[in-house]
């Protein structure tokens, strides 16, 4: 059988080390479907990212992607981090209320957050405070609406079974 699908990227020691390093900040640290999940407040995100990147035992020097998920009553910004030195993974999930779609930008921590945040803004309307340039990236100038949101409807593909 293959070594694939059921890889676990989190161990008890890693969880304990992460909790120790994050110290006083109000977070919830627990396994999230094979990766270590960190749920935190949106005001703490930059400090958490800095700590996780610079600490030598955790050393999350590779930001994989920043995704935005629209849960209708609120939105979630999900950061996937990975460490190349230790081969560990962390998922940071931050809840952003729909009335106030603002969150601090992590571009000062990783320069690779640049276009991911611009795309999140284009498609969902989330504003990343502190980003130098929020002009449209993949949509044309003057596009109305935010296509990624659930409220922007597009037709559904025909299926002949199931739902």
């Amino acid at each position: 059988m293959s070594t694939d699908n059921f890889n676990q990227y989190t161990t008890e020691e890693f969880e304990a080390a992460t909790r120790a390093v994050l110290g006083n900040i109000k977070v919830t640290v627990e396994p999230n479907f094979g990766e270590l999940g960190v749920v935190c407040d949106r005001s703490d995100i930059v400090s958490i990212c800095k700590i996780l990147k610079q600490d030598t035992d955790i050393s999350m020097e590779y930001l994989r992607s920043i995704s935005v998920v629209d849960w209708v009553e609120h939105m979630e910004v999900v950061y996937h981090l990975s460490s190349i030195r230790h081969m560990n993974r962390i998922v940071i999930k931050v809840v952003v209320p729909i009335e106030d779609l603002k969150i601090d930008s992590v571009i000062t921590v990783w320069s690779g957050a640049d276009w991911h945040e611009r795309e999140g803004h284009d498609l969902f309307g989330v504003e990343f405070v502190g980003h130098p340039d929020m002009s449209p990236l993949i949509l044309y100038e003057g596009f109305e609406g935010f296509p990624g949101r659930k409220s922007f409807e597009i037709p559904v593909q025909e299926t002949f079974y199931g739902d």
């Binding site: 293959s2 070594t3 930001l63 081969m87 690779g112």
Partner: peptide
Amino acid sequence: LDYGVTGPVLRAAGVDYDIRKADPYSMYS
């Protein structure tokens, strides 16, 4: 690494990160 570059561009810079070796999937191991 800071930009999130991967693949042959990263390996040309000297960083040994190939998912087939570092985090093997399928029968690569």
